[in-house]
Structures are given as structure tokens and as C-alpha cells.
Write a protein that binds this DNA or RNA. Structure first.
Lengths: 230, 230
DNA sequence: CGGGATATTGACTCTTATCAATGCCCGTGG
DNA sequence: CCACGGGCATTGATAAGAGTCAATATCCCG
């Protein structure tokens, strides 16, 4: 069932309170990343920079070292969405909360930039409109969600997730009318059309959906479906 | 070698010149999507809305129907990055050219929005700064690139692509110093650490790289490496 | 020099791809 | 109205790629 690798152990010395160690200037701040602005902070190897679910309000720029940005599934499967090298910025979020976690891969210096300062109150030059920003950030969120699916979910989970996604976006009660052929679904989910077909059959056998026809799916058991999609 | 499905045939009735058919108002425009602004245009099933490599200068909003946004590899493997339903916006690009193609899945109406209008010359409310915009769009581009890798590339191709990515981002001649362990690489590439290790061994056996140690990779044959990464 | 984390390698399993046959659905034309 | 045909989908048999489990091997770092 769980095809892909799960993280066996994670006995990292989780330094949840990284310590500034640029000894010349830094006071012994606690949680400096969240408060200080634009002052590079050091993180030890494997130290957490921020975690999924924490309030977001800054972005971070790697000054030296390497950072991994990742997401972990309930059962421990992990998908790293990016490695950030010096100069890279990470931690940008669409909403109020971090949707990813970030850790230093090796001892790294990271500068923090308060988001408020990055929104130009009045424009200098042309900056994107609020709507355009929403579009870009929304696309980013969806794409990142899809990364986890493609990197770490098995065929059944992918198809279940797809059904959920389509159901949530085309609300007609719990009957979905798929506009696309199996081939397209396969190319979206990184599978073959035969596998997609088989997984639909399996969801049907499990009593989770009913297939009036190939394009017409009825969700019978949303709870199980959500559980399967992981 | 080529694990994933390639598109067997694509005998779509490529309507490269979709025709506006809202008969009340529309003149018989040619290539209306690129010129008209904000006037919904109809696309037939499987009609091309834009193609990879074409100049980009607008974004598109689905009014009715469904659109697939995708990328095709040289050998025909295709990764759909998104299905766009009514209300969704697509076609936003970081640079001058479209990096994806878009087609109507079923007969669809699409509104075109010139990008110029979406950059607020003077700000109403706060809009993101140019830098922040660059960060968001850059992250988006990288994430989308990664989608193709995770959805459609096999293990050897993924590792080869990873080596290329790291080489291009950490320029020290052609010797790379990987800061992360195999486990992290695996979780980035959607593989297991054993498979990553084996693929490095294979690249070595092929004479494409040299492994001074696990963390120290030397690219011997960039051409082959690029060819393998697909 | 020793020890723990990290990496490699091997044997085997399992999921998913591949190849191929058949079935279904729907529009079209006799 | 029914038969035909073509695209699409399902199902089966088999193969291949990647995962799993397990046994070393190597590399740091103290």
C-alpha cells in the first residue's frame, strides 16, 4: 500500500531555538528569525528555521549554507520541494501560515525580511496588481501541493486525491462530471491511463465511488476517500 | 530506459486558429486571443490556446469549459501541470515566452487579459514590490520544472537532472560539493536513498561523472549528462 | 584509532508500465 | 431505427523499474 519510502527515523537534534552566533553584533536573542529584520542569523546543521503550521510573516534569504524546504505526510513520507543556496529566498506563503517546513542542511546563515516592507505602499515603477499577485501565489500553492502528490503518493492515493480535487472544484452535490479523458488524468497524475482506470475500478470495488460512466463519478464515502488520498 | 508512458498519437484536429463564435459581437478575428483584450473567445475541443515557446504577454481566464496546461518532453512524454476550470487564470509567465502549452479539454470560452494592465502603474492599496514578485515567480518556475521531473522522469534521468541543477547553481568549474546526504536527495527527487546511490553508481559506470566521495561529484561528460537528463 | 552516521551493494518483492485484446458508448449514416 | 465505426475505457498477462530489507563498506570527527 505505502509504496514510497517513509522516513525511518528523524532523531535530529532539533534545535528549535537556533542561536545567533555572529558574536560581534548579536545579542543572545531567542527566536531571532521571527523578530529581527535583515540581520543574518546562524542555524546549525539540521536546525529548524520554521515549521509547517507556524504563522508566516517574513521571507528568508540564504546568506551561506543550504536550506531544505519540505513537507511531511502523516505517515512520515517527506517531499523536499527545494534546496535553497546562497542568494535564494524561501518561506513565502500565500496565507497566514507556513505550508512547508525549512531546515538548515548544513550550518547556514539566513537573513530575515519582514513581509510588510516588501509590499510597496505606493508604487515605484510598476508592480503587479493585487489580483495578479493572487493568481501567481495561488498557482504556486497548487503546484507545490501537486509536487507532494507526484513525488510521494502511490497510484491509488493519486487518483483519490484527484477525485477530491475535482469534487471540491466542480460542486454539484457529490456527483462529478469529468471533462477530460483518462489519458489526460494520467498525464496530470504521472501515471498511465491503464493504471488510472484500474485505480478507479479499485475505488469502485472499495465502495468509495460509483461510476455511472467513465466520466461520471459519484462519491459515496467521502471519509474513506479522504483517508485513502492521505 | 523510458519508463513512463509516452503519448502514442496526437492526431488532434489542431485548430491553431480558433474562431470566435459569440456571433452577436465578435468580428471574424484571426488569432483573437493574442490581440483582443478581455473579450471571451471560444476554443473548440482540443484547440490550442497557446504553445510552449510562443511569446507571452497576456494571461487567460477560463469563462466556461476546461483547459489543460502542460509540457511535453522531446520523446513525447507529457506532464499536465494543471486543469483550469471556470474562474481559473492561466498563462502567467516569468519571462517573455510561454514555458507551457495550453489547450481546451472541451469546447471552452476564455477571456484574455493583457499583462500591462495588471501591473499597477500607481498603487491602489499595497501591492508587492518588484523583488517580491521576482521571488514568487522564480519559485513558481522552479516548482513547475520540478513537476515534470517528478511526474515523468525515471530514476537515472532524475539524478542526472539533479547533478546538472546543482552544477549550474554552485559553479566551481565542474566539481560539485553536495551539501546534503543521499536521503535528502532522494526526498527531493521522489526516490529512495538506495536508488539514488545506484543511479550515481550508474552515472559513474557510464563515465559521465566521477565520485571522489559521496558528496564530491565531478562532471566528466556534460553532454551525455544533459542527454540522459532528457 | 575507534565508532557512529552515511553510503554502497546485493537479493528479492511489489507496484506500475507495457503490450494486447476486448468492450462500451455515442454519433452517423444507411 | 438499427448497424457500423471510431474513439475511449476496461481488463488481462507479463515485464521492468524502483522499493524493501539486510549486510557490509566508507567516511568523518572526536
Amino acid at each position: 500500500m505505502l509504496t514510497q519510502t517513509a522516513i525511518q527515523r528523524r532523531p535530529y537534534e532539533t534545535f528549535s531555538h537556533p542561536v545567533a552566533n555572529d558574536a560581534r553584533t548579536a545579542p543572545p536573542a531567542r527566536r531571532p528569525a521571527a523578530d529581527v529584520q535583515s540581520l543574518p542569523v546562524c542555524f546549525a546543521r539540521n536546525a529548524e528555521i520554521f515549521a509547517e503550521g507556524e504563522p508566516a510573516g517574513s521571507v528568508y534569504k540564504v546568506v551561506s549554507g543550504t536550506v531544505r524546504v519540505y513537507k511531511v505526510m502523516a505517515d512520515g513520507r517527506r517531499q523536499i520541494s527545494a534546496f535553497c543556496l546562497p542568494g535564494d529566498v524561501f518561506g513565502l506563503e500565500a496565507g497566514e501560515l507556513h505550508r512547508f517546513s525549512a531546515e538548515a542542511v548544513v550550518a547556514s546563515k539566513v537573513a530575515t525580511l519582514k513581509l510588510g516592507r516588501l509590499f510597496a505602499g505606493g508604487a515605484r515603477g510598476d508592480c503587479p496588481s493585487r489580483e495578479l499577485w493572487q493568481v501567481a501565489v495561488g498557482t504556486l500553492v497548487r503546484t507545490q501541493e501537486h509536487l507532494l502528490l507526484l513525488g510521494r503518493k502511490n497510484a491509488l492515493e493519486r487518483v483519490a486525491a484527484f477525485v477530491i480535487e475535482m469534487a471540491s472544484r466542480t460542486r454539484h452535490g457529490d456527483a462529478i462530471d469529468l471533462p477530460m479523458p483518462r489519458h489526460d488524468i494520467a498525464d496530470y497524475l504521472g501515471l498511465t491511463l491503464e493504471t488510472v482506470s484500474r485505480m478507479f475500478a479499485e475505488l469502485k470495488d472499495l465502495g468509495v465511488v460509483r461510476l455511472a460512466s467513465a466520466r461520471h463519478v459519484e462519491v459515496l464515502d467521502p471519509g474513506s476517500l479522504r483517508r485513502i488520498a492521505a
